[in-house]
Design a protein around this nucleic acid. Sequence first.
DNA 1: CTTGCGCTTCCAGTGACTGGAAGCCTTATA
DNA 2: TATAAGGCTTCCAGTCACTGGAAGCGCAAG
Lengths: 129, 129
Amino acid sequence: MNIGEVAQRSGLPAKTIRYYEEIGLVRPLRSSNGYRAFRESDIHKLSFLGRARALGFSIDDCRTLLGLYEDESRESAQVKAVAQEHLAAIDDKIAQLKSMRETLSELVHACHGDDRPDCPILSDLAGAD
Amino acid sequence: MNIGEVAQRSGLPAKTIRYYEEIGLVRPLRSSNGYRAFRESDIHKLSFLGRARALGFSIDDCRTLLGLYEDESRESAQVKAVAQEHLAAIDDKIAQLKSMRETLSELVHACHGDDRPDCPILSDLAGAD
DNA sequence: CTTGCGCTTCCAGTGACTGGAAGCCTTATA
DNA sequence: TATAAGGCTTCCAGTCACTGGAAGCGCAAG
């Protein structure tokens, strides 16, 4: 199977699939014409990667998860640990964004947003106490 | 004033200040020995940048905001527009993270996390229906 | 035989820094 | 006065996960 069809079936751009090969996440065979020749198992892996990435796992985490997926002697605790750590990172990020959002929202509401130059958003950024 | 003191007073790493000069956000003078010579107005600008970045504004937005700050004929509506757009982007990001968080949290709770290999997290990533 | 698409590789750019090397400048101490 | 420590300089490379684009080969249709 050529990369175009794999891209469609896995939902990943061909560019991304080539990149994943480059960094060793998939190892498709090669046809005699030099084209990548993907097996069903490659599509399966790529879909796995797509879903993991969609959950925000880093490429490094994806590598780990893929390794665990293929390791029949894994312990589910290992998988859970990776996921929990990622969950905590997501929570941190959400908290940070919410804090930004709150401040920014206050400033936006305080700004009348008309043709006059005075603006509480700029005053705040300028360090008004 | 040398970069070290400016770093302390603005709260930005010296590396970042040099970078901001490189991309034209600040233009400190130079002493005869080649050292950057910052004025109070430079510190003020850098602190402004620090606060804007802390609210998640992109460097490009920061450039715009600084421009508006220094433009006495600005209209507060311009500032508000930039801030509102950023606020919307933050909301999008929060929504996306929350959605990830929800899925991931369910999976983490469903995984017993012991020494056995079967794991709903991996099953989900593998595309179990 | 040409057109056009799909595939290949390779290089560069993204955003916003950050780390590190090599070397000059200044100040304090022996 | 020599030297050592620390601050400053520039420049290059790396981060993360792609993405865009150029140049060129392979292949099927008209």
